[in-house]
Design a binder for these strands. Structure first.
Lengths: 135, 135
DNA sequence: AACACTGTGTAATAATATAACGTTAATATA
DNA sequence: TATATTAACGTTATATTATTACACAGTGTT
């Protein structure tokens, strides 16, 4: 089976948890996910974490590291969780995935002092979103 | 008193914890810090977290979000914790702060689709360090 | 003196994540 | 079809990371 995430067949638990995150307007935390899927038979943290790990691995969701929370991927260019960038509002906590060809090209080609290139990156921008700027 | 971190007078707990992190060749985790400073009278997690919070705030240390660990800042351009970039080796876990004028300029000026600029960022690159590449 | 501000010390607890078992389902290959 | 392999599942217990709540001490200001 292909590894392109559009075609990857999710298992039952993975699907339940992905659907929940995908519907959520904001990033979801693991124990909030757990609480929300208990009625569907997922009872233990480990069941949630295992599904999250897999979903991250195949690029269907991303972890927002600074928030310990998970968001569905809506950016076809960041499959397999290699290259992610987000903006995070420090007031309302709204998180948006950034898809900028310029940014991803710049970072994918970035070399450090020693000329090393890196295979993955995660970038989190912080500031105020448009709404909160106007307040 | 100035807010430039070179001049900020640390309190006793802050100094003890900063010195420990500063001497460490790798990022340190909070409970490892706690273990190491217990002989100096710092007994409780909260004492550690309070010092860490302050040290991060004034830019003397940075948190490596993907590792829940803390590293001393050796980059005079990233004071006040606004703009940080690291490379992380996925094998040996070596973490290095990146100081690249080009990178920081690019990111500080980055605007999203809506033309929004953000006031802070944190970037983590993942890959293999030089040593691990050769193995 | 009264107040605000920052830091401290302590205990308790919350929130996040993993280890260690054994079992079951799906896939691959002989 | 048998069987080996891999990935996922379910459960219990536990490890790790981080915060809440409360009382108090030092410092600087009004």
């Amino acid at each position: 089976m292909s590894k392109m995430h559009k075609e990857y067949a999710l298992t039952k638990n993975q699907q339940i948890i992905f659907d929940l995150i995908d519907k959520s307007p904001e990033p979801m935390k693991a124990y909030s996910i757990l609480f929300n899927v208990q009625k569907k038979g997922i009872k233990a943290p480990l069941q949630v974490y295992r599904a999250l790990d897999k979903l991250v691995e195949i690029g269907k969701i991303h972890k927002i590291e600074s928030r310990n929370a998970f968001i569905a991927c809506h950016n076809s260019s960041c499959q397999v969780a290699k290259a992610t960038a987000f903006s995070i509002c420090e007031i309302c906590e709204k998180v948006t995935e950034i898809s900028s060809a310029g940014l991803s090209k710049y970072l994918a080609n970035f070399k450090d002092k020693d000329g090393m290139k890196y295979s993955k990156y995660n970038l989190e921008f912080f500031g105020l979103c448009k709404k909160c700027t106007l307040k």
